[in-house]
Every structure is written in C-alpha cells, then in structure tokens.
Amino acid sequence: MNAFFDGYVHSKTSLKQFVEQYERALGNKVEKEFQADFKSFSQMIPCATQFEMEERFRSAYTISKFREVQEEFTGKVYCNVISTLEGSSETTYNVRETVMYDGRHKRKTFVVSFVRNNCKVVCNYHLFEFRGILCRHAIAVLDWNDITCIPNRYILRRWKRDIRRAHMRVPIN
C-alpha cells in the first residue's frame, strides 16, 4: 500500500486531498499498465536458450513475466537429474541444483513428480503454486522426458500479453 501511494500522500494529508491523490495515483497506475501492455504487444526480447518451451512462454507472456520465466530456463544449466523412481502412474525424479551460497558451491536436491499420460509435473520447490511459473527443476524433468511443447495448464491467463484486463477499462476522470 505504501508503494502505491508513495509520492502522493503523507501523514498530514487531509481526507479531501487523499481522495484527489488516490484518483491521481490510480490514473498513473492505469497509464503505466497501458504503456507496459503496449510495449509487450510491440516488442519481444530474445530467448536465452534454444528450448521450444521458452519460445512458447515468450510468445504468450508479457515481457516482465517472461523475464521471470527466462531466469528459470537459464538456471536449468545448474540442474541435473540424479535419480528416478518409477511408480505405477508417476515417476519421481531427484534433481540436484548447484547454487552459490556465501561464495561456495552448495548442492540442493529437489523432488519432482511427473505423470507422463497427462504431462503433469510437480516440484517440491512449489514455484508454480506460489508464483505461477515453472521452476528450473520441473523444466529439467520435462526436458529429460523429451517434452518440447509446454502444456496449456502452465501458461496462466493472467500474464498473457493478449488479455484484456477489466480494471483497465474503468474510466478515470
């Protein structure tokens, strides 16, 4: 909330001034979103990898969301599938990631389950559940299984570049 009103109100702002500044802040926010949407429609940033999955995210998502996804694709370089456990309907993978921590290399292992028949992937890192993007560990497992086309369930509508946002149609005087 503070960031939204930063530069518009202060502790001595009256109620009347607050309402006026709220309208101004909302108008500026809508204008910035229009500009960001226009930029997403008119520009594309290059992919960092040769994965078809990354290209699909690039063509679907806004620039800012695609940059988040792109970090996961570049971070996949530090991930290796080290073991698998076949189940009746799903396969469980242990994915080891090498990370820098306090100037030293540290290895962390993540557990990723994959159901081939519906291409469902779940990692115990839970990045998709919390931020709506696949983590590098899940991407590593999809790549390990030769999945090149990302399933639609992992392209969330709210970050698509071609979505019409209802709050953007609210008239601001």
Score class of each variant (00 low, 15 high):
residue 95 V to T: 03
residue 100 M to V: 14
residue 96 R to A: 15
residue 113 S to I: 03
residue 158 R to S: 12
residue 101 Y to A: 12
residue 143 D to P: 00
residue 132 G to I: 02
residue 102 D to V: 06
residue 123 C to W: 00
residue 139 I to F: 12
residue 143 D to M: 09
residue 101 Y to C: 13
residue 146 D to C: 05
residue 148 T to P: 03
residue 108 K to I: 15
residue 135 C to M: 07
residue 162 D to G: 04
residue 103 G to I: 03
residue 149 C to P: 00
residue 125 Y to H: 15
residue 99 V to W: 01
residue 146 D to A: 06
residue 156 L to P: 01
residue 133 I to W: 04
residue 113 S to Y: 00
residue 98 T to F: 05
residue 136 R to Q: 11
residue 140 A to V: 12
residue 103 G to R: 08
residue 145 N to G: 06
residue 133 I to M: 10
residue 162 D to R: 08
residue 119 C to F: 09
residue 104 R to V: 09
residue 152 N to Q: 15
residue 112 V to K: 11
residue 148 T to L: 11
residue 144 W to N: 14
residue 148 T to V: 11
residue 149 C to A: 14
residue 122 V to S: 05
residue 125 Y to N: 14
residue 115 V to R: 15
residue 94 N to F: 03
residue 139 I to V: 11
residue 113 S to D: 05
residue 103 G to C: 05
residue 123 C to A: 08
residue 113 S to N: 13
residue 125 Y to G: 09
residue 130 F to T: 15
residue 153 R to H: 07
residue 129 E to W: 00
residue 119 C to Q: 15
residue 140 A to N: 10
residue 110 F to K: 11
residue 128 F to C: 01
residue 160 K to W: 03
residue 141 V to Q: 04
residue 162 D to Q: 09
residue 134 L to V: 01
residue 124 N to H: 07
residue 112 V to L: 12
residue 141 V to E: 01
residue 130 F to L: 12
residue 117 N to H: 13
residue 127 L to H: 05
residue 115 V to P: 02
residue 121 V to T: 02
residue 134 L to W: 07
residue 112 V to I: 13
residue 108 K to F: 14
residue 133 I to F: 11
residue 149 C to L: 14
residue 117 N to P: 14
residue 156 L to V: 09
residue 94 N to P: 00
